[in-house]
Design a protein around this nucleic acid. Structure first.
Length: 467
RNA sequence: GGUGUCGUACCCAAGCGGCCUAAGGGAACGGUCUGCAAAACCGUCUUUCAGCGGUUCGAAUCCGCUCGACACCUCCA
């Protein structure tokens, strides 16, 4: 399979460090608020990547962190700790806040059919691992103490900023925030704080440098290496992580181990945008999964929408687009249900035409996760009269291993509607037989009002929940 | 101020020098089916790829300019 590597800015043939197994680390959420659907887009992309690797026969060890220790708010160095801020606003302890939003996050992930990481690790459970990395960096001379904090000195390495291709001379220091005067180089970053900028820093731990808390990047370095080793295959995240977070992770990780490259493939998901630009937690308004579900959409409608665009291009969110995804997904399910209604069992994919579709699908998905094309293959396949129905079902199941749209889910059908509703349906059938269309239409209207749509087939009529 | 990315038909979105007189989906409209609908199926929305100019035998795809959108240089997916 081929995969775009941000490090090389090109699509590369993927090969794992260890034969047949892949180590994959994905930056997880900071749990001080609900994830918005833009955040979720990245996890959907990572899920597609993981499932594509699995489909290609790799064993995947997928690690994701939960950032439950605060980061700064949007107000630069004077800001409040995000966790503390939420805690204060909701009158809960920071740990309660973290737990609450962690649960909410996994609920969202689950509704989106995103498989949970094999190892989910919390930052607060790994403070000692972080301290060990910082000690290591200190011994190797990559750090300095200033103003009570431990900083990483980027001038001690010669390839800082290689991932983002930062041109250090041209960056405008302090363009948007005031430069921390304790820093030797404006791009240096904190590994350990003892001198908190926050008045009521709630989470602190003892360390060789005093009581304090870790910097913003060290957790991913410490935890990824703990679970995946000093060198691993894939590191994912949102595209925004490239210039600062991932750049700093690379700096401190490679400085700590001396092994380069620390990570072989860097994969980043693009943003979901709306007419005002990207959604973001710090700029206030954002859409959560629950809010769109509240508007009558299924979480998987959103997943479908994400799959209809390539993960490396921005996706314009609108309700019109979401409606389109919803209709597409529903009609897909409808067609598949019709295939199943003929009581056909999914069988092996053997037919020449069916194999062509299977390969076309693999070509698409293995070509840098080209989900839009893969979806197009699926649609054409369903329309193709040369593929028999049982093979269609088998192909759907095969493709849905990656799509995860629950397309072929055996739903408890038949029993839609109460006994009373079904009696009405019967009455309508009889009315129709008696050519009493007036009564038949009345009943259809009544059932529609109760939220059911009648589907007439040669085998009889049945009810379906109105959508 | 610096650095990038992008602008595809009504909407979302692939395509990145010839197989493009542009995938796929959605919406809309027409037809088949149906007592009428719904669903399904078939067809139409397609000489056009922000605009202008250039390179080329050939451009949506490369180059230049203009206009517009977005992102990063703070935390952010």
């Amino acid at each position: 399979m081929r995969l775009y590597n941000t490090m090389s800015r090109s699509v590369e043939e993927f090969s794992s460090i260890k034969k047949d197994s892949v180590g994959m680390y994905c930056c997880g959420p900071t749990v001080y608020n609900y994830a918005h659907i833009g955040n979720l887009r990245t996890y959907i992309f990572e899920d597609i990547l993981k499932k594509t690797l699995l489909l290609n026969g790799y064993k995947v060890k997928h690690v994701m962190n939960i950032t439950d220790v605060g980061h700064l708010t949007g107000d630069g160095d004077d800001g409040e700790d995000k966790m503390s801020k939420s805690a204060k606003a909701e009158k809960k302890s920071v740990y309660e806040i973290a737990e609450f939003y962690t649960d909410a996050f996994f609920k969202d992930i689950n509704r989106l059919n995103i498989s949970k990481a094999d190892i989910v690790c919390k930052a607060t459970d790994h403070i000692n691992d972080m301290i060990e990395v910082i000690k290591n960096l200190e011994e190797k001379g990559h750090t300095y103490l200033s103003g009570g904090n431990v900083y990483f000195s980027i001038d001690t390495i010669d390839d800082y900023g290689k991932l983002a291709r930062l041109n250090l001379d041209e960056l405008k220091e302090g363009a948007r925030i005031e430069v921390d005067s304790n820093k030797k180089n404006a791009k240096d970053f904190v590994l350990w704080f003892t001198n908190s900028k926050f008045k009521d820093q709630a989470m602190t731990w003892p360390s060789p440098w005093g009581v304090g808390y870790p910097g913003w990047h060290i957790e991913c370095t410490a935890m990824s290496m703990k679970y995946l080793g000093a060198q691993f295959d894939i590191h994912c995240g949102g595209i925004d992580a490239i210039p600062v977070h991932h750049t700093n992770e690379i700096a401190q990780s490679e400085a700590a181990t001396g092994i380069k490259p620390w990570v072989k493939y860097w994969c980043h998901g693009e943003f979901l945008i709306n007419d005002k630009g990207k959604m973001s937690k710090s700029s206030g308004e954002f859409l959560t999964l629950s809010s769109i579900i509240g508007k009558g959409y299924d979480a998987l409608d959103y997943r479908y929408l994400c799959l209809s665009a390539h993960y490396r291009s921005q996706l314009k969110f609108s309700y019109e687009a979401l409606d389109s995804a919803k209709s597409a997904r529903l009609s897909l399910k409808e067609k598949i249900k019709a295939l199943r209604k003929d009581s056909i069992e999914a069988k092996e994919i053997k037919g020449e035409k069916a194999l062509e579709y299977k390969n076309a699908f693999l070509d698409a998905i293995n070509n840098d996760l080209h989900t839009p094309q893969a979806l197009a293959v699926m649609h054409s396949m369903l329309k193709d009269g040369d593929v028999d129905n049982s093979e269609k079902l088998a192909l759907i199941s095969f493709m849905d291993q990656v799509f995860s749209l629950s397309l072929n889910a055996e739903e408890k059908e038949e029993t839609v509607g109460s006994a009373e509703d079904l009696a009405l349906l019967d009455e309508r059938t009889n009315a129709k037989k008696a050519k009493d269309y007036k009564r038949a239409d009345e009943i259809r209207a009544i059932l529609l009002e109760r939220g059911y749509v009648i589907k007439d087939t040669p085998q009889g009529s049945y009810l379906e929940k109105k959508v």
